[in-house]
Amino acid sequence: MALAGYVGCGVGHKYPTDPKVLRPALELRGLRISEPWVSTYFTIKAMKRHTLDNVDAQLDFLEAMEGDSNDPRRADLVVSEFGRAVNPLPVALFPNCPDFSEDEWKYLIEGLHEAGEKARARNRQLCYHPHLGTGVMKTEAIHRLMDETDPRLVNMLLDTAHQAAAGVDPLALARKYAHRIKHVHLKDIRAEVVGAIKARELSFQQGIEMGIFTVPGDGSIVTFPEILDALAAADFAGWICVEAEQDPAKANPLQYARMGREYLRKLLGW
């Protein structure tokens, strides 16, 4: 990542979990943490307390990573509701995406507000990630989440590829919610793979392995310039994280990381 020209990264699954080990390794390379991931489970039974405990643990982790730093860049808390989610399961992705009941929506909104209060008390932004295979994947669900959550406590993470693959227009979201988008996962989709996943009733994992995602500029999304313009018009100053989520045996990670960074240089001028 450092060789490709990036200044930060999410928390990888294979990273050291001890901040005393991880922080020096990142600082040696000029990298900072952009976010930890928290899967929330507010919509299923007996998981609210576990979820909020995990939120506290991740906020503690961020303080250990950044507590005495003078760097103005701070990591965000990224969350997504995985209650009844099918993306971790070996089942057809699109037909099995859950639709939340009224009670589940109530539990989700209440839980997110509690998590958002915790983040706010620690001077962090909670950013919600609408994710393939979850109950907040479709356009109407994303709008409902934004309508029913307090903008002081719940921000949006715009993931251009997850939204596009779900049939949601990421440019329309960027324009409508520009002032609530505080974190961006910038990645592309291969539309022909999305079509194959639907036609062959494949799982999320199978879609990843087939190459549903790639770095921005290498796939089917053509509105990245307009998306970035919409965010700039709202004075966006958060993390823009390039992602690919590809099989490394098929797509060399350094090669694609450099491709994504070069594409952004051409768009942004830096």
Score class of each variant (00 low, 15 high):
E104D: 11
G30T: 09
F213A: 00
T139W: 07
I109M: 14
Q163M: 08
R175W: 09
A75Q: 03
D150N: 15
E66C: 09
N123A: 14
I33Y: 01
R261Q: 07
A25V: 04
D188Y: 00
L112E: 02
A237Y: 01
R144L: 03
P72N: 14
V86N: 06
R23A: 11
Q206M: 07
E140Y: 06
I221T: 03
H131E: 09
M137C: 13
P98R: 14
C9S: 12
D235S: 15
G135S: 12
H129G: 06
Q205I: 13
V136P: 02
L171K: 14
D247M: 03
D68L: 06
V168I: 11
H131G: 02
G83L: 11
G12F: 12
L157I: 01
L158N: 08
P90C: 12
R175G: 01
Y41R: 05
V168D: 01
G207A: 15
A244F: 00
F61G: 11
R124C: 13
G133R: 05
P151Y: 07
E117C: 10
V91I: 15
T214K: 02
P225I: 06
L228N: 05
R190S: 04
G238H: 03
K176T: 13
K198T: 10
Y41C: 03
A92D: 07
G8Y: 05
F61I: 07
E262T: 15
E110M: 12
L157R: 01
A115S: 14
R265K: 14
W270L: 03
G116M: 09
G67E: 15
K187W: 03
A172Q: 06
P130M: 10
T17S: 15
A165P: 01
A234C: 10
Q125V: 11
E192Y: 06
N96S: 12
H113C: 13
G133Q: 01
Q125P: 00
L254T: 12
I33F: 02
T51P: 04
K187D: 00
G30M: 10
L89D: 15
F94D: 06
P170K: 04
A4F: 11
G260A: 04
T40D: 06
A172E: 05
D159V: 12
A166N: 05
K182Y: 04
P90T: 14
